[in-house]
Measured scan of single mutants.
Amino acid sequence: MSDQEAKPSTEDLGDKKEGEYIKLKVIGQDSSEIHFKVKMTTHLKKLKESYCQRQGVPMNSLRFLFEGQRIADNHTPKELGMEEEDVIEVYQEQTGGHSTV
């Protein structure tokens, strides 16, 4: 019986991991920090939209990076291997420009 009891508790931990929340720091170019608590399985588009709304800027005017890689709207913290207190960097999107060649 103890084996049966242990097995469901392991499964519960697996389920808990799926719905687990982590805190992420979003740091802007001006070094301002906003902290977000997100589920591991939530699409990061929600975090990006919330950040842009707080900053009063359109979402397409900023780019969000985690460990140097651009974050897509459909990425989740779990897919990117994010952990508690990880940092997302935000930069002004640069458009235009010309070749110097």
Score class of each variant (00 low, 15 high):
His98Trp: 08
Pro8Arg: 12
Asp30Gln: 06
Asp30Tyr: 05
Met82Glu: 04
Ser31Pro: 07
His35Cys: 14
Phe66Asn: 05
Gly81Ile: 04
Gln29Val: 02
Phe36Leu: 02
Glu85Cys: 14
Met59Ile: 11
Glu18Ala: 11
Lys37Ala: 13
Cys52Gly: 03
Glu85Asn: 15
Ala6Val: 14
Lys46Met: 05
Gln53His: 14
Arg54Lys: 06
Ser99Glu: 08
Glu33Gln: 08
Phe64Ile: 00
Glu84Leu: 05
Val57Phe: 05
Thr42Trp: 01
Tyr51Phe: 10
Lys39Tyr: 07
Thr100Trp: 07
Glu20Met: 12
Asp73Val: 01
Tyr91Asn: 05
Val90Tyr: 03
Ser9Val: 11
Arg63Tyr: 09
Asn74Pro: 05
Val90Phe: 05
Pro58Glu: 09
Ile71Thr: 03
Met40Lys: 13
Val38Asn: 00
Gly96Lys: 01
Glu85His: 08
Glu49Trp: 00
Lys48Asn: 03
Gln69Lys: 12
Gln53Ala: 13
Thr42Ile: 04
Glu84Thr: 10
Thr41Gln: 15
Phe66Ser: 02
Ile34Thr: 10
Glu93Cys: 10
Ile88Tyr: 03
Lys23Thr: 10
Asn74Cys: 14
Lys45Glu: 11
Pro8Phe: 12
Arg54Phe: 10
Lys37Asp: 05
Met40Pro: 12
Cys52Ala: 01
Gln55Gly: 05
Glu84Pro: 14
Met82Trp: 03
Glu67Gly: 10
Val38His: 00
Thr42Pro: 03
Lys17Gly: 08
Glu67Ala: 08
Phe66Pro: 02
Val38Trp: 01
Tyr21Val: 09
Phe36Ala: 04
Leu80Trp: 02
Gln92Thr: 12
Leu65His: 14
Val26Leu: 15
Ala72Leu: 14
Lys23Asp: 06
Gln69Ile: 04
Thr42Phe: 01
Pro58Tyr: 02
Lys7Gln: 11
Leu80Phe: 01
Ala72Thr: 15
Leu65Ala: 03
Glu79Met: 14
Glu79Thr: 03
Glu67Leu: 09
Thr10Ala: 12
Leu44Gln: 03
Asn74Glu: 10
Ser32Trp: 06
Glu20Tyr: 14
Gln29Leu: 11
Thr41Met: 14
His43Lys: 15
Phe36Trp: 00
Gln53Lys: 09
Glu83Thr: 15
Asp86Leu: 01
Val26Met: 03
Glu5Gln: 14
Arg63Asn: 08
